[in-house]
């Protein structure tokens, strides 16, 4: 009896790692935006939803090849990110941080209702069924494995971009000191726009991976949104390494908690864990707070 039990636990642990990869990717874009521009995009998960709809329509309705669809969707969400920055965030850069947060809350309502009006409230499915791999009596979904791999790849590419290119260096420099960089001849406005575009593209990438696993509907953002913010805060807002670790911790809690009880309880445990951690380490796992 206990042997069977352990296999389920191991399966849950492995699925947790795979989920963690995707959650880490979700948190990455938000962390980048926060670290560099110092705003929280409450509507981040809704950008992902728009990417998922774009994937669905281009692939299932217009029958374009998957890779082309993925590239168009990523670029599309990237453009949305830039628009969000230019239209909503830029006028509010000098305002109280909480106003920026609430304004993106308005964008959340806007995107959600746009999706409701344009696409309807029914669940839409891409209709791709990838096989389930069986390893030593454990079932691991190929989709999740793929998502995990691509998420890791995306993170490596972002890391190389930030550490090896001139623009990447400028982005990291701004994240370190907002006041001094304009004096050093860095065009802050341009860097913010580039960062927003990258944040959007990362959301688009997450959309490509999530649409393989979940049906898309206008309220799907409320499923990932809270968990993404909690990962970022737990990791220390702006800290990418912290976000990465937090994503895996959260994913394991959800996956293992969901094994013993229902899936909602996995989320409840994760949220409670988050609140407890906020009191133990309010600056986040790897955070630096002024």
């Amino acid at each position: 009896m206990s042997a069977i039990f352990d296999i389920y636990l191991l399966e849950a642990l492995i699925n947790g790692v795979l989920l963690g990869g995707v959650l880490a990717l979700l948190a990455l874009g938000l962390n980048l935006i926060f670290g560099v521009i110092d705003v929280v995009w409450i509507c981040y998960a809704e950008l992902i939803m728009m990417g998922m709809y774009s994937m669905y329509y281009l692939y299932s309705v217009y029958h374009l090849p998957f890779v082309v669809v993925a590239i168009i969707s990523m670029a599309g969400v990237g453009v949305l990110g830039v628009l969000l920055h230019v239209i909503v965030i830029q006028p509010l850069l000098g305002a109280a941080p909480i106003n920026q947060l609430l304004a993106t809350g308005g964008v959340l309502a806007l995107l959600q209702s746009t999706a409701t009006i344009t696409f309807g409230i029914d669940f839409k499915n891409l209709g791709i069924r990838l096989p389930v791999i069986e390893i030593a009596d454990m079932f691991v979904s190929y989709t999740r494995l793929l998502a995990f791999g691509v998420a890791l790849l995306g993170m490596v590419v972002l890391y190389l971009f930030l550490s090896r290119t001139y623009t990447g260096t400028a982005i990291r420099a701004i994240a370190q000191d907002r006041q001094i960089m304009p004096l050093m001849g860095v065009d802050t406005k341009r860097i913010y726009i580039i960062t927003s575009a990258i944040g959007g593209v990362l959301a688009g990438l997450a959309a490509c991976l999530l649409v393989l696993q979940y049906d898309v509907h206008p309220f799907i953002g409320l499923t990932f949104g809270p968990i993404t913010f909690m990962i970022c805060v737990l990791g220390g807002l702006g800290s990418m390494v912290g976000g990465f670790i937090a994503a895996f911790v959260f994913a394991e809690i959800i996956s293992v908690g969901g094994l013993y009880l229902e899936l909602e309880w996995g989320y409840v445990f994760a949220f409670v864990f988050f609140i407890v951690m906020m009191f133990v380490r309010p600056q986040g796992l790897m955070g630096r707070r002024s």
């Binding site: 909503v88 308005g106 964008v107 959340l108 309502a109 209702s113």
Partner: peptide
Amino acid sequence: VGWDNFVYGILLV
């Protein structure tokens, strides 16, 4: 359906 939230969202921003 959805339009009220659409208007709210724009107004809030």
